[in-house]
Design a protein around this nucleic acid. Sequence first.
DNA 1: GCCGTTTTCGGCCCGACTGTTTTCAGTCG
Length: 618
Amino acid sequence: MTHRGYAGFQTCVGRCKLGLMSQTNAKLSRIFQQMADVLEVLGANRFKVIAFQKAARVLGELTDDVAGMDSKELRSIEGIGKGMADRIEEFAETGGLPEAIELFDKVPPGVVKMLDIPGLGPKTVSILWRDAGLEDMAQLTAALDTGELEELPGFGKKKIENIKKNLAFAEQAGKRAKIGEAMPLALWFVEQLKQLKQVKQIQYAGSLRRGKETIGDLDLLVAANEKDAGAIMDAFVGLEVVADVIARGETKSSIRTNEDSGGKSGVISGGGGMQVDLRVVPTASYGAALMYFTGSKEHNVRLRERAVSMGMKLNEWGLIKTDSEKVVAGKTEEEVFKALKLAWVPPELREDRGEVALAESSHKAGDAIAGPPLIEVSDIKAELHTHTTASDGMWSIEELALAAAERGFHTVAITDHSKGQVQANGLSDERLEKHIVAIRKVAEKLKGKIIVLAGSEVDILADGRLDYPDSLLKELDVVVASPHAALSQEPAKCTTRFLKAIESPYVTIMGHPTGRLIGRREGLSPDMGALFKAAAERGIAMEINANHWRLDLRDTHAKAAIAAGVKLAINTDAHRLANLDHLQYGVLTARRAGATKKNVVNCMTKAALAKWLKSTRT
DNA sequence: GCCGTTTTCGGCCCGACTGTTTTCAGTCG
């Protein structure tokens, strides 16, 4: 769900000058999304609304800057036609879009904001605004108690009660849980429902299965006999963490969890107030339903269009011949894809970013899976970014190294903070020298068990200098250069800053380059294309930081990095034991970027890794 | 508004659940 309330951007549309290029995509993406919202309330042609939504999504995911493109290039982008291309060009040239301002003037921002209330769609909001004259949430709240709304068409007591109840959740609209919060909660639900004897198959689906960095709600799919569906639904809505039953049907139910569902069940912290949908289907439909429930919506639409063009229809029950109603496939995802003349698409790629075309060519080539096999957690053999008690970690060098060895890694690098990170107890030059000696000692002791490398997570200072002198850096095996301060620099400035850091002959990996914290800090917007080009030339790696707060590089950046020939590093940035489990989120992000193990330095053999590290010292 | 192995016009995915309805519209995913 998109967070609405466009007042801030309204001013931006009129006032923002052609700022820094890399922000154009983001700005236009938001403007198009807001235009879609307003058009929806105004009752515009729904395909027009969809076109604006699609343009917003496409621009949001694009790493190339639209400000530098001509009309022809723009129109070659899927979802951008003449109309959108003209708007983009106008915005890039003038820094504004008068059409958007004009449109926003037609509907009060408070009305658009009402779309955030669960259960309220454009039609209902339009009635509240046009027929009842309500212009914002406060007026709506007041009107709910007077009884006047019952006069409106389609408004009954229950609907008004539901609006009252859901009003509180409008604030949460657009708030998404981090994947590291959603995953344990999903696994808890799966574990609970698995215990029911009626449940034959169960799997979490939705954006969690696609490995997205944030999750809006949890989707669970169960295969069972039709007659058992009711009992499964009863068990589901009766679970201890359920605060509210939103819907309870024979094949589909939705609940909201307690605010403290994490704490109470020992599940997680931070996953409270999440919506969880459960769908129960017969085994014969499980594959089709899993596809339907995994999404993305855009990916599904594309598959359904393909089915129609082949004289079939695709829904959660199966792939069905239109004329005879004969079910062609449905039991497994593989058979449904195959019947569509497609190779099976890994869930992480199902975002309508060209994966259907890929699946088609793979199928033609006789492959069962679309594209090359994506990287898996078990491919990771080295951890190159960790912290110990020397700075702000919880482990000693030896504890950390042994834990890494236990996970089957052949190499671990100890990379504590540099001196600029005072609050993280960063190491002074002198302390680093001693620390290197301590690391070498442990390395010697653990010889044969695991290779322990001496490294540092060196701050990239605001001007691009590194936080240690070269004389010290050259003593290290691994240098992860990361930004920790000056995280609101202008794009051009931080691009120059990072390019300078990449030039250092001692840097091996650039760590979490935007410095974002998901849902908390926007972070930097450097010109990623320029960084990738420089990193590729130097042969150094760009990090996907696997911590679920960061996931930085994000999926789209990592995809562009691979396309630019840059090596990726997937590191946990572990400060404590549990952090090593975050590796899965980094791998999911890499999979969403289409990464294979060949793209990732952590998958190298001992010898290859050593050789690569040496090669970066040029 | 976008798009094109019938195309520059006429399509544009599909079903469950709810609430207000006497057969369906709205919302959601």
